[in-house]
Design a protein around this nucleic acid. Structure first.
Length: 652
RNA sequence: GCGCCCGUAGCUCAGCUGGAUAGAGCAACCGCCUUCUAAGCGGUAGGUCAGUGGUUCGAAUCCACUCGGGCGCACCA
């Protein structure tokens, strides 16, 4: 049992007279916010004060008298307005740590009630290369899967790829009209990506050309509104100012829209080849949509192209996943659910949930103005339909009792409607959760793009990270009198540092917030970064290397842990909190709570390393004890990082 | 117009199911390498937690309003 749970069960006895309120009161036992207050603190006395009609300090004192923790803690202290401060006995901490020697799990036992959780993440469109926009879902989703598994849950990771949408019509159209067969044979996916981009660009061109007059008119209209508004300035200056500010904002964004439209046109028109293509394919957008429709309708030649393209696209995705070290149990894309869509709408209609509105089949959820469209007026199904079919499959076939959707927060309304619809549809016996996250921004607070304005491809992102991590590795090893790494080892370490840096930078933010992408911070060797934690791990390995002792030998030695100084004590307590960190991560699926534990652990190790010599420990026993601590810390760091999908190297 | 999210140190962020003087990392300044990797350690400085009002014994945290920023909102996924 974890330290915290042990304490809580003792308090439960002492608080028995408060009946139903006890669980809530036990929640108020927390890790102390400051070490000088002990290890844990209980904060319930103040909130009980009013109900009981006694001063909080008296309540705290009474509870302490009834509390039996003498085998665990020093005498509890009542402090301040009525806090109860608890400090574990060194002997207890030492004994607990001694009992987990050699355990990669640091004594964390599997959950008693495992759930089957499907984690839906990454989910790129296969027609275009993966880019930075897919990074967060992929990294966060993978970390959640690993952590759930570690905790003992059954996990099915599912890559719900976009392999059936409009983008395939574009590729098919592009292939039929613009393919360069030599390029296609040499590198099919690159050529398909070019075709996608080209068709998209030409469609965009025509759409923009048609839209530009409206955009200009809108801008003009806003400018006129502003002139008209000016006349009201004296009537109510405050109100005027506010309206004026808002108008100015609207005008700015309208102007931006016009400018970007003009740029879109200019790019095509300034290029002879592109503009002749545009002229030759005036209805390209509709024709591409037609290709999609034909594919969906079962057209043999389009199906044949799809069958040809898809494996190549999947292979290209796999390259990225391999480099990131990410695996899926299932890759069931939209196409997989296609045959199931009609029955989704049918059963929704049978239950009276879906009804016709403007020719589309919609589910209306109370409290939402927007409908949940499950079939468009042209008969086509939407991603809402697919998502419902997916839920049905996951419960009925996979027997899942929980689904996590690791998808960015702009889609929260969609998921709210989806979950409500699913519950009404009969899927109210399972848990749905939108694990949402913010946008990756650049230093100016804009979504992260390349200098040219394109989204950043994941492949080049990883390459760039390696370009930056390699010199760090080289420099470190070059400083040594005797080099420890050869060229290929250095390359391997650089890759571990690079990929770890990318993942850690993402995971160490609370997933809800937008986060600023910053190469320098991501691969910094100091501070709260993957490299620093990986380095702490390597330093520990260095101790064993230097002393010529193997870690497994120490782990098997049955030696005991001694606590002789605050640094050792802090390390022991930290090791015993690992379980708590895992629980916290899984409570709301927040991996940053694990990065916090990792950083805290490596930080405490650095202090220990600085002040407590292993080699020159006063006694043999203490030396053994410190070796055990080092080994356990290394295990904790390695296991913790592995739950985030981050690797370690013994030598850096 | 409707809805969701955000505003904490110079910068990037924690803390938000209310609890003791608001934390960390970078950056800045001052110290520490004959000693297991200085990618380290010790110290200093830095904040009316956007603002106003409310609830409470107690508010960065809950509620209301204001200001500032972002994102969604009927047939793209």
């Amino acid at each position: 049992m974890s330290l915290l749970n042990e304490l809580r069960s003792r308090f439960a006895t002492a608080l028995a007279e408060y009946g139903d309120e006890v669980p809530g009161l036990l929640e108020m036992i927390r890790v102390a916010q400051d070490p000088k207050f002990g290890d844990f603190q209980a904060n319930f006395a103040m909130s009980l004060s009013k109900k009981v009609g006694k001063p909080p300090r008296d309540i705290a004192t009474t509870v302490c008298q009834k509390l039996d923790v003498s085998d665990l803690c020093e005498t509890p202290e009542v402090a301040g307005p009525g806090f109860i401060n608890l400090r574990f006995r060194d002997s207890l901490l030492a004994a607990r740590v001694s009992s987990i020697v050699g355990d990669d799990r640091l004594g964390v036992s599997p959950v008693k009630h495992p759930r089957h959780v499907v984690v839906d993440f990454s989910s790129p469109n296969v027609a275009k290369p993966m880019h930075v926009g897919h990074l967060r879902s992929t990294v966060i989703g993978d970390a959640i899967c690993r952590t759930l598994r570690f905790a003992g849950h059954q996990v099915t990771s599912d890559n719900h790829i976009g392999d059936w949408g409009t983008q395939f019509g574009m590729i098919i159209y592009g292939y039929r009209n613009f393919v360069n067969m030599d390029a296609y044979r040499a590198a099919p996916v690159a050529e398909l990506a070019r075709l996608y981009k080209l068709v998209n660009q030409l469609s965009d061109y025509h759409a923009t050309k048609a839209k530009l007059p409206q955009l200009k008119a809108a801008l003009e209209g806003l400018n006129q509104q502003r002139v008209a508004l000016k006349a009201t300035e004296n009537a109510d200056p405050k109100k005027y100012q506010k309206a004026e500010n808002q108008l100015v904002k609207q005008i700015d964004s309208a102007r931006e829209a016009v400018e970007s439209a003009e740029k879109t046109l200019a790019v095509v028109e300034s290029d002879e080849h592109l503009s002749s293509l545009a002229a030759a394919h005036p209805t390209i957008a509709r024709l591409a949509r037609d290709e999609t429709a034909r594919l969906h309708a079962g057209d043999a030649s389009n199906q044949a192209l799809w069958d040809e393209f898809l494996p190549e696209c999947l292979k290209a995705l796999q390259v990225i996943y391999d480099r990131l070290g990410i695996q899926f149990d299932l890759t069931l894309g939209e196409s997989f659910y296609n045959p199931m869509l009609p029955s989704v709408v049918e059963t929704l209609a049978e239950k009276g949930l879906a009804r016709s509105s403007d020719g589309a089949q919609c589910v209306f959820i109370e409290g939402n103005t927007a409908p949940f469209i499950v079939q468009k007026s042209d008969g086509a199904y939407t991603y809402a339909t697919t998502d419902l079919a997916t839920i049905r499959y996951r419960r009925d076939e996979l027997k899942a009792n929980e689904i996590l959707y690791v998808v960015d927060n702009r889609q929260s309304e969609h998921f709210q409607l989806l979950f409500s619809t699913a519950a009404l549809w009969g899927y109210d016996d399972m848990t749905f959760r939108h694990v949402s996250f913010g946008t990756v921004m650049d230093r100016n607070g804009k979504p992260y793009k390349t200098r040219a304005g394109d989204t950043v491809g994941l492949e080049s992102l990883i390459d760039e990270a390696i370009n930056r991590s390699r010199p760090i590795v080289n420099e470190n090893d070059d400083r040594r009198e005797v080099k420890l790494l050869n060229d290929s080892e250095r390359a391997a370490v650089a890759e571990i540092v690079a990929v770890g840096g990318i993942k850690y930078a993402d995971l160490h933010h609370n997933r809800d917030s937008d986060y600023v992408f910053d190469w320098d911070k991501m691969l910094a060797t100091t501070g709260d970064t993957a490299a620093a934690i990986q380095y702490a791990y390597a330093r520990i390995c260095g101790i064993f290397r230097k002393l010529q002792i193997s870690r497994s030998e120490i782990a098997d030695s049955h030696a005991h842990v001694l606590i002789t100084c605050p640094e050792e004590r802090a390390l022991c307590l930290q090791l015993l909190q690992f379980e708590f960190a895992i629980e916290n991560v899984l409570y709301e699926y927040r991996p940053h709570l694990l990065t916090a534990w990792l950083y805290e652990t490596s930080d405490r190790f650095s202090k220990f390393y600085d002040r407590c010599s292993v080699q020159d420990a006063e006694t043999d026993e203490l030396r053994q004890s410190r070796l055990i601590l080092c080994d356990l810390i290394a295990r904790g760091l390695k296991t913790g990082l592995s739950l985030l999908g981050i690797e370690t190297a013994d030598v850096m």
